[in-house]
């Protein structure tokens, strides 16, 4: 028996891992965190700090066109000295010039109206998809995602050919005698609404679809069995249950739409005020880096609330899913 025991333990040979092994594991497991962490710190967080810093500095005709507020060489004492005389001029300027205020207001307004229309268009489509025969749903879903893979710029550009005064829409309507003078859609808010609804419609449809698809259709049948008309069953059962999808979809359209640049620039013409475009112009046309940085900081502050709503709704949906 003693022999058997000895041979068993020698065959098994369990031994504690060597020091080298453990070092290697500790290092590799750290690297998994450290590499992406450092990358994001360097290329995501620090740039924001710089934006914030430059938004507090003076415009100068130089390259780079601003006078730095802090520089690392001056040390900490200088840092606190300068902190006292920080330059909030750019922010004051933003509040004094109605151009910027109007740009913020009209951005939010345009984004909100577009979101509403995207919901109006997207809901019936998502509902129809969720009710489609199960075998078709993956194909329909792919057809919604497919435009997302084609260039955003191209999709906006496609509308330029349709909406302009001598464009395809007016040609069609004129030839059908619906109208006798071309509609002026291009370079108006309507064109921007169309552009945003079109570009972001998949973002609206996808969360709505996933909320509606999960829903048990027998709930509607139960409601109708208990005396609801189809319409009141929709408003009392379907819509409340799809609310997480509605919130997610609206936020996914609203948040990027507020800061949108390409759509107002290409479809909205020079008259349109939107904050993304203003920032771009301040930066590229006026070369006023401090003011465009301040515009960016305020845009970010503006978006924090909808982003929080979105995160909160997502977290709650995840909990309910469990």
């Amino acid at each position: 028996m003693a022999e058997a025991t000895a041979s068993l333990s020698s065959a098994a040979q369990p031994a504690a891992p060597s020091f080298g092994d453990r070092m290697f594991q500790a290092l590799t497991s750290r690297l998994v965190i450290i590499v992406p962490y450092l990358w994001l710190l360097l290329f995501f967080l620090i740039p924001f700090v710089i934006v914030f810093r430059i938004s507090l500095s003076q415009t100068a005709i130089a390259m780079p066109p601003y006078t730095p507020v802090f520089s690392l060489q001056d040390g900490l004492a200088a840092f606190f000295d300068q902190l006292r005389e920080l330059n909030f001029d750019n922010y004051v300027w933003l509040t004094e010039d109605p151009l910027y205020f109007n740009a913020y207001v009209s951005s939010v307004w345009i984004a909100a109206v577009s979101t509403f229309f995207a919901l109006l268009v997207g809901y019936p489509v998502a509902y129809g998809m969720a009710r489609a025969p199960a075998a078709w749903r993956p194909t329909l879903l792919m057809l919604v995602i497919l435009p997302f893979w084609t260039s955003f710029l191209i999709r906006v550009y496609a509308w330029m050919g349709i909406l302009k005064p001598e464009g395809l829409l007016n040609q069609l309507l004129l030839s059908l005698n619906v109208i006798d003078t071309p509609l002026l859609i291009m370079n108006t808010h309507t064109a921007i609404f169309i552009g945003i609804v079109y570009s972001y419609l998949p973002f609206m449809i996808l969360p709505l679809y996933s909320a509606l698809e999960k829903m048990d259709y027998s709930l509607i049948e139960a409601a109708q069995d208990l005396g609801c008309t189809p319409i009141s069953a929709f408003w009392k059962i379907t819509f409340p249950l799809s609310l997480p999808g509605v919130i997610a979809g609206c936020m996914l359209v609203f948040i990027p739409a507020v800061g949108e640049f390409v759509i107002p620039d290409l479809l909205g013409g020079s008259q349109t005020l939107m904050i993304g475009k203003t920032l771009w112009n301040e930066f590229f046309a006026n070369r006023d880096w401090p003011v465009s940085s301040a515009v960016a900081v305020i845009l970010l502050l503006l978006l924090i609330v909808p982003i929080m709503i979105f995160q909160f709704a997502q977290a709650r949906a995840q909990e309910q899913g469990r």
Binding site: T5, L8, S9, A12, P14, P17
Partner: peptide, 10 residues
């Protein structure tokens, strides 16, 4: 296990 302490063995 067979008289040997398993602590620390992965």
């Amino acid at each position: 296990l067979d008289g040997q302490d398993l602590r620390g063995i992965p």
